[in-house]
Amino acid sequence: MLSPQVIAVSLLSLTLVTAQDCPPLPDTGVVMGEPVPMHPEHIPSGCSAYEILVARGTSEPNYEAGGGKFGIVVGDPVVSNTTVKLPGARGYPVQYPASAEIITGTRQGARDVVNRLIAQSIACPRQTFSLVGYSQGAGVMHAAAKDIPIALYPRIKSLVMFGDGYHRLGDVLSRFPVGLNSKVKQVCAPGDPVCDPNATNCTFFHLTYIRPSYINPAVDFIVKGFTG
């Protein structure tokens, strides 16, 4: 596998592409379906004012050269930009492998999200949360939402889904539970076959969420949810 620096450069090159056809995928060296190592040392301890729970996409590595812990395409830029705009915010990397074993992995990730929300809500009575999911990670958040105690809904200030496969199924089937759905922002790149029902089978566009045009509005949405 290529180094995180090379992966970052390859993915950042996506920001330069404007063609409407299907460009070739960058050679990142990532083997899709391989599990992502989990690092318990990346789990933040204690309390913070705001916590962003991030469920990464399939086999999405961290941008380690930049101190990333949450996924190079979505989680790392979202968390880093949010913490700049909102001191007191931090990220939590959902502990699941994000591998080709989607059914078992989704269950594992969903349990981790629910357990984290419950534990932190007890330990930190003033902490509030945002849930961010990318690709398979969006499925994790859908699964988790079914088991989040309703009493915790007011503590969850926003949910942002990138490349959400449920979004392709239409408004009704992609909804989160009542009490959470009104706080959801769906980010779907035109042409992304995972979430865009009108897309062709071009995986390239599923990797373009690193673009500032997708990251910046999501960050603004998260900050507004926490502070508004």
Rank of each mutant, 00 (worst) to 15 (best):
I52M: 03
R155H: 10
F226R: 03
G109W: 01
C195F: 02
G163C: 09
F162P: 01
V78E: 11
Q120V: 10
A49G: 14
K69W: 11
Y134T: 08
I103N: 02
I43F: 05
H142L: 03
I150T: 15
H206Y: 12
Y50A: 10
G29V: 12
S59C: 02
V178P: 03
V132P: 04
T18W: 00
S182C: 07
Y63K: 02
P40V: 06
V172I: 13
A143V: 06
G46K: 09
V17L: 11
G133M: 04
L16R: 08
P154S: 15
S135Q: 07
F162T: 00
V9Q: 11
N198C: 01
P40G: 15
D21C: 08
S45N: 01
F162H: 07
I215K: 05
V160H: 01
N62F: 13
I103P: 00
M38R: 11
L11N: 05
H206R: 04
S3V: 05
E51P: 00
Y92C: 10
N216E: 15
V184R: 04
M32E: 10
L131F: 06
V9I: 06
V219N: 03
L53G: 09
L159V: 15
L86V: 04
V54Q: 00
N201E: 05
Y92R: 05
V194Q: 00
G91I: 05
P26A: 13
V114G: 10
I43A: 10
F205A: 08
D196S: 08
G105W: 01
V17S: 12
I72L: 02
K146N: 13
T128I: 13
K183R: 10
F129A: 02
V17C: 14
V223G: 13
V73P: 05
N115A: 15
G170A: 11
P35S: 11
A189Q: 08
D21G: 14
A65N: 11
A189I: 12
T106C: 06
F176G: 10
N115P: 00
S99D: 09
A151S: 15
L159H: 03
R175L: 06
Q186F: 10
L2D: 15
R56G: 09
N115T: 14
A145V: 13
P97S: 14
S45I: 01
G163I: 04
I43Q: 04
L131I: 12
P97Q: 10
A123Q: 04
E41I: 08
M161H: 07
A123T: 12
P40I: 09
A218Y: 01
E101P: 00
V140F: 01
A199N: 05
V31S: 07
D164K: 04
P35R: 04
I222E: 12
D27N: 03
P23C: 14
A123W: 03
S174I: 01
G225A: 07
I72S: 08
I148A: 08
Q136P: 04
P190M: 11
L2F: 08
P125C: 11
T208F: 00
S174H: 07
S121N: 06
D192N: 04
A123K: 05
L131W: 09
D27V: 05
N216S: 13
Y134N: 09
A218E: 01
A145H: 08
A110V: 08
G165M: 06
Q5E: 14
A49M: 07
L86W: 01
T104N: 07
L53A: 11
I102H: 05
I43S: 10
Q5N: 09
P97K: 03
N62L: 06
V54P: 01
G68L: 07
T208I: 01
F205L: 00
E101Y: 06
I222V: 14
